[in-house]
């Protein structure tokens, strides 16, 4: 199975500031990837690099094993839904479909029309008359009707109410189910991603911190909880990612361990949210394929 996205030593610098650096990433085809990280961590930079909208300052990007090229064949294989999902404000919805049809040889007009009809967005309406949610939906329809093999979405849910969020994700998941599309979805709301994503990429301070299959990551970590005054009795070699103290209880996010710690301690698998927050709170820790650096 080949990789939909592969980056080696990828970096992007703005002036003297590295927005992203030394980024090594492999995303297998057919995955639904959650790209998470604090604001300004480099999520958008990474997506822009993969989309070929900006050029790397260092390293390289491969899409489906091929370098990013400025030709119709390379451009036709992916679609990008940018953060503001900007569409031409003066265009009618029908014009957007013509736009998609004229500029994309793989365009699926029936799919686009069906979707818009389902969403109840009238083709005669102008983009500027649509609500923020409808605009995001239109942008997503435009992106999916392009029939991409790779769909990049930058904060597609940010401007949406919960109902619209559900609709957008449903539309996205149906596309994945029908066409095996690889999806990379950035968000800082983990709850939106729990049931939809199966691969996690966490970016923090311009570096890739975590990359892997969510089920494996969850199985490979544990939350160890117990009384804070017994913390010192835990073995030193316990691979702790991060720990937090709540009153008299201490919670440790650790890599999976076969050790047992006595009756005072409980061990349970982490939730995705705990895992993500644990790593983002400990920027020096990482969970990546290959050699791994640990916090301790």
């Amino acid at each position: 199975m080949s990789n939909a996205v592969e980056t080696v030593g990828l970096g992007r610098r703005y002036g003297r500031h590295w927005a992203l650096r030394e980024c090594r990433l492999s995303i297998p085809e057919g995955r639904v990837v959650a790209l998470v990280g604090p604001n300004g961590a480099g999520k958008t930079t990474l997506l822009n690099l993969v989309a070929g909208l900006i050029r790397p300052s260092a390293g390289s990007v491969l899409r489906f094993g091929e370098p990013v090229r400025d030709d119709p064949a390379s451009l036709g294989r992916f679609a990008y839904l940018a953060q503001d999902s900007a569409l031409y404000p003066g265009f009618r919805v029908a014009d957007l479909l013509t736009f998609g049809r004229k500029l994309n040889p793989r365009w699926d007009d029936d799919l686009a029309r069906d979707r818009l009809a389902q969403l109840g967005i009238p083709p005669r309406k102008r983009v500027r008359q649509l609500s923020g949610g409808q605009r995001a939906q239109c942008a997503l329809v435009l992106a999916s009707a392009k029939r991409p093999d790779l769909l990049l979405l930058d904060e597609p849910l940010a401007s949406l109410d919960p109902l619209a969020r559900h609709d957008v994700m449903a539309l996205l998941m149906e596309t994945v189910a029908l066409h095996g599309t690889t999806v990379v979805l950035s968000s800082h709301i983990i709850a939106d991603l729990v049931d939809t994503c199966d691969w996690l990429v966490a970016v923090n301070r311009g570096r890739i911190q975590v990359s892997g299959e969510i089920d494996e990551l969850l199985a490979g970590h544990a939350v160890v909880s117990g009384p804070v005054d017994r913390r010192a009795h835990l073995p030193d070699r316990l691979p702790v990612v991060t720990e937090s103290v709540n009153g008299r209880q201490v919670d440790l996010l650790t890599r999976a361990t076969t050790d047992t710690f006595g009756p005072a301690w409980s061990v349970r698998p982490p939730s995705l949210d705990e895992l993500v927050r644990g790593y983002l709170g400990a920027p020096d820790a990482s969970a990546l394929p290959g050699p791994v650096a640990l916090a301790r």
């Binding site: 639904v32 994700m169 449903a170 998941m173 994945v176 189910a177 049931d195 939809t196 994503c197």
Partner: peptide, 17 residues
């Protein structure tokens, strides 16, 4: 129901289905 039908209603990853 097919995976596509389920995910279109529930908005979950098709692999889960």
């Amino acid at each position: 129901p097919t995976a596509a039908e389920v995910v279109a209603a529930l908005a979950i990853n098709p692999n889960t289905v």
